[in-house]
């Protein structure tokens, strides 16, 4: 058959196409975006919060972030070398993990603890399950949970912005009913309060969040349902909703942790369920639990439910 065709079309044309043609299933064009583009967008979106942490906690904040990123990338690299897997650090996902981990650590964290955290995030949080895409839990939050259980004192020592004097976190003040001044709404909005490195400035976080929404790397569903649920429950139980939204790690968690692609549900309806669940668990822990803050655990718990949420929120086929 082929030979017949070739015989009839001897000459220049045949010469040219005698080389191999690529034969593959459609579509034959693909969008430019890959994992690296997505991660670059997230890094760019986190940079205002990084700037805020440097302003309020000094250059040590940058040091902690750098150590965390360095050990995340190094852990990923050596793990993949060790198991003779393809080296994928170029996709920048360990950089994001490193940044996010540093953002949920206190500014006075010892550097060796940061390094251990980064190692735990990459190995126990991600690579042990098979790498990016297979990890059931948010790696940065897994590391935070491990550090909190291992070095609770370091993980709950808070310092005031600018002077570094030890103080309580705003949520801690409320929880322990301490006789200390709570930061004003404006101070919390700008980030002038005690807290984890990256969680303090609502303004900086929102700037990054707007960028991620604009670039369609996240959708509104998880942050809105998460923050909305927290606000609504606060109203119902007569707590200050604005304070509860801005005082802890909620803004960072809702826009940058709960929206983690791998560990959140696939569908938009699933994302709404996920966000409401995170919101309910967060207020449950804050109001009735032993810890002043519940964002980290609530997201980790909802991560566990993601496969089930995916199953029950399958979208309806067009027209049915």
């Amino acid at each position: 058959m082929n030979r017949d065709g070739a015989l009839l079309y001897r000459g220049k044309m045949e010469e040219v196409i005698s080389q191999r043609l690529i034969v593959s299933v459609s579509p034959h064009i693909r969008a430019r975006e890959d994992v690296r583009t997505i991660m670059s967008d997230v890094i760019f979106a986190l940079s205002p919060a990084l700037g805020a942490s440097i302003i309020f906690f000094g250059w040590r904040a940058l040091l902690i972030v750098s150590v965390s990123i360095f050990f995340s990338v190094a852990s990923e690299f050596f793990w993949q070398k060790l198991w003779r897997k393809k080296i994928t650090v170029g996709d920048l996902s360990p950089v994001v993990t490193g940044m996010l981990l540093a953002f949920v650590l206190p500014p006075s964290s010892p550097l060796w603890m940061v390094a251990i955290g980064a190692f735990v995030a990459i190995t126990l949080g991600k690579q042990i399950f098979g790498g990016l895409g297979y990890n059931p839990f948010n790696p940065a939050l897994v590391a935070r949970a491990v550090l909190l259980a291992s070095w609770p004192v370091y993980m709950t020592t808070w310092t005031k912005p600018f002077d570094g004097v030890t103080t309580a976190s705003p949520l801690g003040i409320v929880k322990m009913e301490l006789d200390q001044r709570l930061p004003s709404y404006l101070e919390m909005f700008l980030g002038n309060r005690a807290g984890c490195l990256g969680e303090i400035s609502v303004l900086a976080l929102l700037l990054g969040a707007i960028y991620l929404l604009y670039r369609k790397q996240i959708t509104w569903h998880i942050p809105v349902s998460y923050i909305g649920t927290v606000g609504l429950v606060c109203l119902l139980f007569n707590r200050d909703p604005l304070f509860n939204i801005m005082a802890g790690g909620l803004i960072l968690g809702a826009f940058f942790m709960a929206t983690d692609l791998v560990t959140s549900p696939l569908t938009r309806r699933g994302k709404l369920v996920f966000g409401v669940g995170c919101g309910l668990l967060t207020v449950l822990i804050r109001f009735t639990g032993g810890f002043p803050e519940g964002v980290c655990y609530s997201i980790l718990i909802m991560n566990m439910l993601t496969p089930i949420i995916d199953k029950i929120t399958e979208p309806k086929v067009f027209g049915s």
Partner: peptide, 25 residues
């Protein structure tokens, strides 16, 4: 006007749903 350079893919239809061919015959 003929081919421009060496083709790598020949598609019957468009790039989204077209079918890749192994020959111009």
């Amino acid at each position: 006007g003929g081919l421009l350079g060496n083709p790598e893919k020949i598609i019957a239809g468009g790039p989204m749903m077209g079918i890749a061919q192994y020959t111009l015959d």
